[in-house]
């Protein structure tokens, strides 16, 4: 069966919010909330209310990165110092804990940040080819609802969009 991408552009967030709310309450039987993607010019944390809690895995990356940075940082320093044992200095031990703690801390943050970045790039699906169905108005001031639908649902969804003062509807066939 043919599948379609549908993009409806709304002039303000409240209309889009209401439209998704209708989908959530099964106004159109068979259309799942999971098929809905909201694209917006600004961040709308309150969208979770209608879209439901969708997970973000970034904090897990952060945790792994930080723990890795801290432990690998300390081990790296300690091994380097132990293999450079000609170097006792200032009456201090060959492996001095205070300075290693400082540097492990920096490594914790550095790797935490780098892993967070990786998590963000993967989680947000950046660095990929953008879907062609995109309107430049979204980066200006309009809110878009993008859906992946089977052919039979297209007309009811369009009707729902119009009911909520949609400005523009674009559609295309999924290849």
């Amino acid at each position: 069966m043919k599948k379609y991408h549908l993009l409806g552009l709304f002039s303000n967030f409240d209309e889009a919010f209401a439209a998704i709310s209708d989908i959530r309450h099964h106004k159109i039987p068979g259309v799942q909330l999971e098929d809905v993607t909201v694209i917006s010019p600004i961040e709308h944390p309150e969208i979770d209310e209608v879209l439901g809690a969708r997970p973000s895995h970034v904090p897990k990356f952060t945790l792994v990165g930080s723990l890795f940075g801290m432990s690998a940082g300390f081990l790296f320093l300690a091994t380097a110092q132990a293999n450079f044992a000609v170097q006792p200095q200032g009456g201090k031990p060959v492996i001095p804990l205070p300075s290693n703690i400082v540097l492990s801390y920096e490594m914790l943050i550095l790797f935490g940040v780098l892993f967070t970045l990786t998590g963000f790039l993967l989680g947000a699906r950046l660095l990929r080819k953008r879907k062609p169905l995109y309107s430049e108005k979204v980066s200006l001031d309009q809110v878009g609802i993008e859906m992946e639908l089977e052919e039979k649902y297209i007309e009811p969804v369009k009707a729902l969009f119009r009911q909520h003062q949609v400005i523009e509807i674009r559609e295309e066939v999924v290849k």
Binding site: T79, A82, N83, A85, G91, P93, V94, I95
Partner: peptide, 14 residues
């Protein structure tokens, strides 16, 4: 190396 000689590496001037 570290685990074997840890106490040696932790010896300061004192």
């Amino acid at each position: 190396n570290i685990l074997q000689d840890w106490s040696k590496y932790r010896k300061g001037n004192e």
